[in-house]
């Protein structure tokens, strides 16, 4: 049996706008992926869990305006643990389009701003993991 794509999702920081990431979590499950939604979690905790649980994707959601800060912190932590490049990294939430390029430069693979349709996220994961998600 083909291994299901495993996705770990979390909210960094204190911001309590959870609706977006919970919706993504639901949509990815509906698309046949296995999602682990952590709620609030530190990046240290997330990276540790991602390694342990052998996930394919790490995604986080930011509505606080601190998307660049959190992206840098996650990538730095992955580098420190020698796990940079082991996971597909996604960010979603409310942030301006002008910041998409910088988020990619920091090392986030998939950047999903307001107005994203969840199917786009599914397609992005499928294409970038180089295999069809099993359902």
């Amino acid at each position: 049996m083909e291994k299901k794509t495993r996705v770990l999702l979390f909210k960094p920081g204190l911001d309590g706008h959870w609706r977006g990431i919970m919706t993504v979590s639901k949509a990815l499950s509906e698309a046949g992926m296995e999602t682990i939604f952590f709620g609030f979690k530190t990046v240290e905790g997330v990276v540790e869990a991602a390694i342990q649980e052998d996930v394919d994707v790490i995604g986080f959601s930011v509505h606080s305006g601190a998307h660049l800060e959190w992206a840098r912190e996650l990538v730095r932590e992955l580098e420190e643990k020698g796990a940079r490049g082991d996971f597909l990294l996604l960010v979603g939430g409310v942030f301006p389009e002008q910041d998409h390029e910088e988020l990619r430069e920091i090392g986030i693979d998939g950047v999903f701003g307001p107005g994203t349709v969840t199917a786009e996220i599914v397609r992005f994961i499928e294409e970038n993991l180089g295999r069809k998600v099993s359902g």
Binding site: G13, L14, G16, T42, S64, A66, E69
Partner: peptide
């Protein structure tokens, strides 16, 4: 108010990256 004021956290508390927000 900002997320710290909602949660009752000070910016100099080293809680969960509070200072970013």
């Amino acid at each position: 108010v900002d997320s710290l004021t909602f949660s009752g956290v000070d910016p100099d508390q080293e809680v969960h990256g509070a200072a970013h927000e």
